[in-house]
Design a protein around this nucleic acid. Structure first.
Lengths: 127, 127
DNA sequence: CCTTGACCTTCCACAAGCTGGAAGCCCCAT
DNA sequence: ATGGGGCTTCCAGCTTGTGGAAGGTCAAGG
């Protein structure tokens, strides 16, 4: 199967698939004309990647997840540890964003939002 | 004042300050030897930038905020609108992260995390 | 057989927001 | 004069792709 078809099936644009090959996440065969040929196994890897990325795993983590996926002798503890680290990072981001949101909401509420120049938001930023 | 001192006072590393100059957020004077000289006004701009960035505003938004800050005839409505757009983006990010977090938490809970290879996390990713 | 359009290929540049490092100048103290 | 620190510029890299240009390939229609 060609790149655009595997792209449709996996839900990834061809550009992204080429990029994933470039960084070694997949290694499709090549036809005599130089075209990439994707096997069912390549398709599965790509779909796996799409879902892992959608969960916010970094490309490096995806690499590790794929390695674990292909390792029949893996320990599920290793996968769980990876997922836990990732979730810890997400929790940290959530906290930071919630903190920003809270401050912003306060500032926005305190601003008249009319045509006068006086603005608590700018005053706060300037301190 | 020199770059490292203004950096300490504004809470920004010299590298970042040079970068901000490069992209036109500040324009410090230069000494005859080529060294940057920062005025109190430069310091205020830098501190403003640090706080705006800490609230998650993009550099482009910071540019607009600084312009509004320096415009005596601004309407606070414009500042408020900027802040509202930004908060909307933050809310979107929060939603996405919360969704990821929820899925991840489910997967993590369902995984034994022992030395056996069977793993619901990988199964879900592979679908 | 030739053309046309839709593929495919590679390579380069850009996005955000810095950060690190190298090479070289400058200033002050010893 | 020598050493250490600070300053300068420029280049490269991080992450995760995206957009575009130049050019090869393939299948269908005239």
């Amino acid at each position: 199967m060609n790149i655009s078809e595997v792209g449709k099936r996996a839900g990834l644009p061809p550009k992204t698939i080429r990029f994933y090959e470039e960084i070694g996440l997949i290694l499709p065969r090549r036809d005599t004309n130089g075209y990439r040929i994707f096997s069912e196994s390549d398709l599965h890897r790509l779909a796996f990647l799409r879902r892992a990325r959608a969960l916010g795993f970094s490309v490096q983590e995806c690499r590790q997840l794929l390695a674990l996926y292909n390792d029949e002798t893996r320990a599920s503890a290793d996968v769980k540890a990876l997922a836990r680290e990732h979730m810890a990072r997400i929790d940290k981001q959530l906290e930071e964003l919630a903190q920003m949101r809270s401050t912003l909401a306060d500032l926005i509420e305190s601003c008249a939002g009319d045509n006068r120049p006086d603005c608590p938001i700018l005053r706060d930023l300037a301190q």
